[in-house]
């Protein structure tokens, strides 16, 4: 599904608010049909990046293009290419859902007959047909999120930028939201999704970008990102039986460096190691186990999770901030 042509390209994007650096030379590119999970701690620069992409904010330096259109110079073209859903719904009083969508459709210059058809389609796609006659301000948060997505889809944008679409949703609504997003990606649209619900993102995103302190810390597929950011890897050694498992555990402890953690589970006949050892070292350990006659059933690395990568990136940014602060004080 993912084709090679990049649809979103960001080059050395910086945004300064006086002395405060919200974005520091951020660069990334995204191919057509991808779902990018754009994550980072609060104040990391996610929303700033998104606002620049949709033409609501001007970068201090650097460039951003969507579908070849520059986000500063070709704002009109960018607005037609992008469907933007901010974290705040943007409700109007006394307006029904259908009227709300009709207004935004008309604002995008869609003719009335086409608009009617499109409203039916987007309501269908977001499972929101039943709420078309309700007043928007009376909708629950989950309903508003669906209407928000329907609104972004009205003008058939190539790229969807969704700021915290799963925020505040109950588990059932979250599952529905996930299905909607996957369906949209299935239609060939490119999605940029920010969220703090990391397990949710890891299920739908084929690309992850982690920003912290205004800088891109890691980007790539989920395993790539966790590998980039995780300082220690988790190795699981599954034995055929638990006989002598404690001795095997001690053997592994002796072979690994002191900062490694080794835990032994007799009931599962499994030994788990958290280590910073490289592939060569792990190969040596496996060889030692086999030559020692240990009945090794499996020797595998368990993929690190997004949460761990996120925390590492946030800590890195915090450490940088503290160092910069200390240098400032010493000066």
């Amino acid at each position: 599904m993912t084709t090679a042509s990049p649809v979103v390209e960001i080059r050395d994007l910086s945004k300064h608010y006086g002395e405060f650096v919200a974005l520091d030379k951020l660069s990334l590119s995204l191919n057509r049909g991808s779902i990018l999970g754009f994550i980072g701690p609060n104040g990391a620069g996610k929303t700033t990046t998104i606002r620049i992409l949709v033409g609501l904010s001007r970068p201090t330096s650097g460039s951003a293009t969507i579908g070849g259109a520059d986000c500063v110079r070709d704002i009109a073209k960018v607005r037609r290419l992008v469907g933007y859903m901010p974290d705040k719904f943007g409700s109007y009083d006394n307006m029904r859902v259908r009227e709300y969508l009709d207004f935004f459709g008309a604002a995008f210059g869609i003719t009335r007959s086409v608009r009617r058809k499109r409203i039916d389609e987007v309501l269908e796609l977001t499972n929101a047909v039943w709420m078309q006659d309700r007043y928007v301000e009376s909708l629950s948060h989950g309903m508003q999120q669906r209407v928000g997505i329907a609104r972004t889809l009205l003008h058939e944008p190539e790229v969807l930028i969704l700021d915290e679409p799963a925020n505040g949703l109950d588990p059932e609504a979250r599952i529905e939201m996930r299905e909607i997003l996957l369906r949209l990606a299935g239609e060939g649209r490119t999605l940029i999704v920010t969220s703090h619900i990391l397990p949710e993102l890891s299920r739908i995103c084929d690309q992850v970008a982690i920003v912290a302190g205004g800088r891109l810390r890691a980007m790539g597929s989920l395993p790539e990102v966790t590998r980039q950011l995780s300082q220690r890897r988790t190795i699981e050694v599954q034995l055929l039986n638990a006989t002598g498992i404690e001795a095997t555990g001690n053997l592994i402890r002796g072979l690994l460096s002191e900062d490694s953690d080794v835990t032994v589970s007799e009931t599962e006949a499994t030994i788990r190691c958290r280590t910073s050892a490289d592939d060569e070292k792990l190969g040596e350990i496996l060889k030692s186990l086999v030559t020692s006659g240990v009945p090794v059933g499996q020797f595998r690395e368990i993929a690190g999770d997004l949460e761990e990568a996120f925390v590492t990136a946030a800590r890195e940014a915090e450490a940088e901030r503290l160092t910069a602060g200390a240098q400032e004080v010493s000066r």
Partner: peptide, 25 residues
């Protein structure tokens, strides 16, 4: 009554303002 949609050549913001206003319908 279900709205038929904003007619052509009419400013959508004007229609929206009337719709949103408590006594604008």
């Amino acid at each position: 009554k279900r709205s038929k949609g904003i007619p052509p050549l009419v400013n959508p913001v004007m229609v929206k303002e009337f719709q949103c206003r408590q006594f604008g319908r």
